[in-house]
Design a protein around this nucleic acid. Structure first.
Lengths: 349, 349
DNA sequence: CTGAAAGCGCTTACAG
DNA sequence: CTGAAAGCGCTTACAG
């Protein structure tokens, strides 16, 4: 005996209306030619019965599950909320559901997560790879977000340009000596951001980079970054490569009595949730998650439509670089020059 | 003509091995009695062909999709990463996939999100309701996380006890005047936490509550909370009802030259990602997301197993209260007494 | 121990 | 415009 769902199905609607299931199906999907009168009657009756089409039946028949996968790395990554939200929104708009898989742990955990999704029949997946991971080709279309390491199927924020925007901003405020604060020198993202900052420095400016992970290996985790000393050495701007580092810098400076932003500016990246909440609020550069998600999902959907599922096809012809947006929340600096665009502190391009 | 998937199916394996699909199915699932020898051969061949069972076929036949839904509220809620991770982990362990749905927007958006999940055939769902929302019964088993408003199917952290732990901690440090900093007085969670703090005060201690949202309506968003004034009035402890408020309090105090924790202590709730990173690190109270997720998923799975899907059955016999855990990171206070448990600053119960 | 057959709910050519 | 029928891939009694 086969298992049955409690809800009504096409057959029940058909029987109770004295028509065929084909006609009910056509009426509900609007595809076949059904007289408007009958279609209306069928739709009404279906709604009355609380008919919910069976995804399983539809998927089996059409070969399309209507579901995409989202593979995420890093325990409790603070970017996760915005990203997942944007992906879910874009996928829903395209008529897809989103199955999540957490690839915490090592690369093998990532592979397992990918396999679980394939087993659940996803038609494609968005992968945010673990640091320095090459995504092993899954047996379905894949879009990769945020790492430049696998050219040809990647959409990423333009971290380099974001770095340049930070540099311009700090230059306009009159800063000369900049301390770049990063976490891990192996991270492509962080290197892009740092490179962007350096490339955007103007004459007379210079920057040094402090890698927190390295410092913590030497001095122990949670150690002081010695930023107050840096202020005494003449640094006036602290450009962190993520808001989390920026927050650490800001609180350490404040704890040690440095007036931010009057005596030193602190900037970050990513516009995480606390950036506007702290005092003073953080100047930062935000990824356009909505656009990134739209590109990832639309190229995935495109690939699915044209080549079918389970082909391991990679998506997008080249790396898509989505511009980052500077959000100025601290606009004073050591020399407090008149802003060139006096109205809102926005930078001229 | 019906759509086909590219991958091999049971029939292909059966044909190429000269056996029946039933036998292949039995061998792969280990259910029917198949000779170990043949079973081994079938498994080997299946692996060789890269056979991935069709969820659609299985779901249609068994009436079970193997998927649960997770409905989340609030744009970019910082608790989301930990929660989603814990839910995904518990669901995976129970053999389920997790489909996410974001109920951002109003209550109707939440209803829509729930409906989308039902349409995708989830067997049950975990809902984190929007503030002050009653979950309208979906047509499948539901477990609710973190609101006390719908008794009978809820698992929640013991916010009240968490509040008491904060109060004990502050009492032990010798604080007398405590400012509770909350966001929204309508929130059940925040009220539980605040109530817990008040109930844990000892003789000679007193507390006042500051609601940030209300203050911002009067003075504009991002306004100063005037905490330095509070210090002058004699407040020495600032007990925020979430780490986000704690962070705001900490940075404002430090900006205004108040030495934390020497002159004032700041505590939060939730152990969000930045809590250990700021200087000084935040003392906070953490939800046990792993346990909460396990309870939610296991009661969901139990309900599904015993009563089948699509019955709108509610889960768990009463509100499950999962203990919160105090994490002490600031252990000095105005009078810096000797801790009663000298080794680790943990509180005696 | 193994196989033939039914049927889950749906969609889609095709016939009428 | 409407219906009869096939078949997507699987699992499960049942027969041999």
């Amino acid at each position: 005996m086969a298992q049955t769902r409690p809800g009504p199905n096409l057959s029940r609607i058909a029987t109770s209306l004295g028509v065929s299931v084909a006609t009910v199906s056509n009426a509900l999907s609007g595809k076949g030619r059904v007289s408007e009168q009958l279609a209306e009657k069928i739709r009404g009756h279906a709604a009355e019965l609380g008919y919910v089409p069976s995804q399983a039946g539809r998927a089996l028949r059409t070969g399309r599950s209507g579901v995409l996968g989202l593979v995420l790395p890093d325990i409790a990554n603070p970017l996760f909320p915005k990203l997942a939200q944007a992906i879910e929104f874009a996928a829903t708009a395209a008529g897809y559901g989103v199955l999540i898989a957490d690839s915490r742990g090592d690369v093998s955990a990532q592979t397992e997560a990918i396999n679980r999704l394939v087993e659940r029949g996803v038609e494609g997946m968005v992968i945010v790879p673990r640091r320095a991971t090459r995504v092993s080709a899954a047996s379905c279309p894949v879009a990769v977000i945020d790492t430049a390491s696998t050219p040809g199927n990647t959409v990423a924020a333009d971290h380099w340009q974001g770095g340049r925007d930070i540099a311009s901003h700090l230059a306009d405020l009159g800063h000369q000596r900049i301390l770049i604060i990063g976490n891990n020198p192996e991270s492509n993202v962080q290197n892009d951001r740092a490179g962007g900052i350096r490339s955007g420095l103007r004459d007379g400016m210079n920057a040094t980079t402090l890698w927190v992970e390295k410092l913590e290996r030497e001095r122990g985790s949670g150690c002081s970054l010695g930023l107050a000393d840096k202020v005494r050495e003449g640094y006036t701007a602290f450009a962190a490569l993520s808001d989390l580092q920026a927050l650490r810098a800001l609180t350490e400076l404040q704890r040690d009595g440095v007036d931010v932003p009057a005596a030193a500016s602190v900037t970050g990246f990513d516009d995480l949730i606390w950036s506007p909440v702290v005092t003073p609020a953080l100047t930062t550069v935000a990824m356009d998650m909505v656009t990134i998600a739209e590109i990832a999902i639309s190229s995935l959907v495109e690939t699915i439509r044209t080549s079918g599922t389970r082909e391991g096809k990679l998506v997008a012809s080249d790396i898509d670089r989505v511009p980052m947006k500077l959000i100025v929340r601290q606009s004073s600096g050591p020399s407090k020059p008149m802003p060139k665009t006096p109205t809102d502190g926005e930078l001229p391009k």
